[in-house]
Amino acid sequence: GTVHVGDKTYHFPTPDAAKKFAQEIAKKLNLQVTVKNGTWQVH
């Protein structure tokens, strides 16, 4: 899975790992999470 946070991109071996990371970052930074075609965006 891929997660975009601002101008950074993180790659994870599984979709679940990407989802978990995106949700944790969003919670920590009080941001929104959207997913499109398996790519997570934190914004």
Rank of each mutant, 00 (worst) to 15 (best):
G38V: 03
D7L: 12
L31E: 04
V3G: 01
V5G: 01
V35P: 03
Q41G: 05
G1R: 11
V3F: 01
H43V: 14
A22S: 02
P15L: 13
K28R: 13
H4A: 08
K8H: 11
P13M: 09
L31I: 05
Q23L: 15
K27D: 09
L31M: 14
K19W: 09
K28L: 13
H11V: 09
T9S: 08
T39L: 08
V42F: 04
P13K: 12
V5D: 02
N30F: 05
V35Q: 12
T34H: 07
H43R: 07
D7T: 14
F12V: 01
V35E: 15
T2C: 12
H4Y: 12
L29W: 15
D16L: 08
D7M: 13
V33L: 11
V42M: 03
W40P: 03
Q32V: 15
N30H: 11
Q23P: 00
Q23N: 11
H4D: 05
P15A: 14
N37P: 02
D16P: 04
F21E: 00
D7V: 10
F12P: 01
K8D: 06
Q23V: 12
K36G: 06
V3W: 00
H43A: 11
V42D: 03
T9N: 05
D16E: 14
H11F: 13
Q32P: 09
L29N: 07
T39M: 14
G6I: 08
T39K: 12
Q32M: 12
A18S: 02
N30A: 06
K28M: 11
K20M: 10
G38W: 04
F12R: 00
D16T: 10
Q41V: 15
K8I: 09
A18G: 02
Q32E: 11
F12L: 04
G1W: 13
E24C: 13
T9R: 08
V42K: 01
H11L: 08
T9M: 12
K20Y: 07
T39N: 14
H4W: 09
K19N: 07
P15G: 10
A26R: 02
V33N: 01
K28P: 02
D16G: 10
K19F: 11
G6H: 10
I25S: 03
K20F: 09
T34E: 07
A17Y: 04
T9Y: 13
G1C: 15
P13A: 13
T34N: 05
Q32I: 14
L31S: 07
D16W: 06
K20I: 10
A26T: 03
N37H: 04
L31G: 11
G1Y: 15
